[in-house]
Nucleic acid binder design. Structure first.
Length: 179
DNA sequence: CCCTGATTCGC
DNA sequence: GCGAATCAGG
């Protein structure tokens, strides 16, 4: 069947993992002889657990331990103490009063979230939409849904086609500024 | 319910 | 060392 973790397979595992493939995808790629759990287990044993952009930021809550199924012989006694360890969440105390008004449009870019983004606030995206720190510019929208600054970027009339030169560099550079 | 990675622990 | 079971979360 599967020859265990040969150097070949480990190499493929490393490569695919570092490429950003998910554990299940890697498991398939290795020929189905392994499960995604096996892949993950191996990944951890190899010491490469953290990747550039895991789909999930990983577990934040502390989990005590897992009793794992089936105590083979559980006699009648042992009432089992009601122990339950739990990390106490500090409870950040959300806002003294209710959320003020979204109308108070911040002038600092990137402070508006999807929840606080008002009708006339700049909807220029800040950051990676797949992460939790994603936000919007939020400044006063003047040109369409964007503020003046971002409107310039969003509504770039046309990239002048220059012969032979890299026409995208201008756009790329200007975009880079705002990402 | 699908998926993701993380962790524990019997083997 | 291995990986199933289980977990927490998107």
């Amino acid at each position: 069947m599967n020859p265990g973790w040969t150097e070949d397979r480990v190499g493929a595992l490393k490569k695919l993992w570092l490429e950003g493939q998910s554990a299940s995808q890697i498991a398939k790629a290795l020929g189905g002889g392994v499960t995604r759990n096996a892949v993950i287990g191996k990944v951890h044993r190899l010491g490469l657990s953290g990747r550039a952009a895991p789909s999930q930021p990983a577990r934040t809550t502390f989990r005590p331990a897992r009793p794992r199924a089936a105590a083979p012989a559980a006699p009648v006694q042992a009432p089992s103490a009601p122990r339950r360890i739990e990390a106490v969440a500090p409870r950040p105390v959300a806002a003294a009063s209710q959320t003020p008004t979204p109308a108070a449009a911040p002038e600092l870019p990137g402070t508006a979230t999807v929840l606080t983004l008002g009708a006339h606030m700049c909807k220029w995206p800040i950051g990676d939409p797949s992460t939790s720190d994603f936000s919007f510019c939020g400044r006063r929208a003047s040109e369409g849904v964007y503020c003046v600054e971002h409107a310039r970027v969003a509504y770039q009339p046309q990239v002048r086609k220059s012969a032979g030169k890299d026409a995208s560099s201008d756009l790329a550079r200007s975009l880079r500024r705002y990402i």
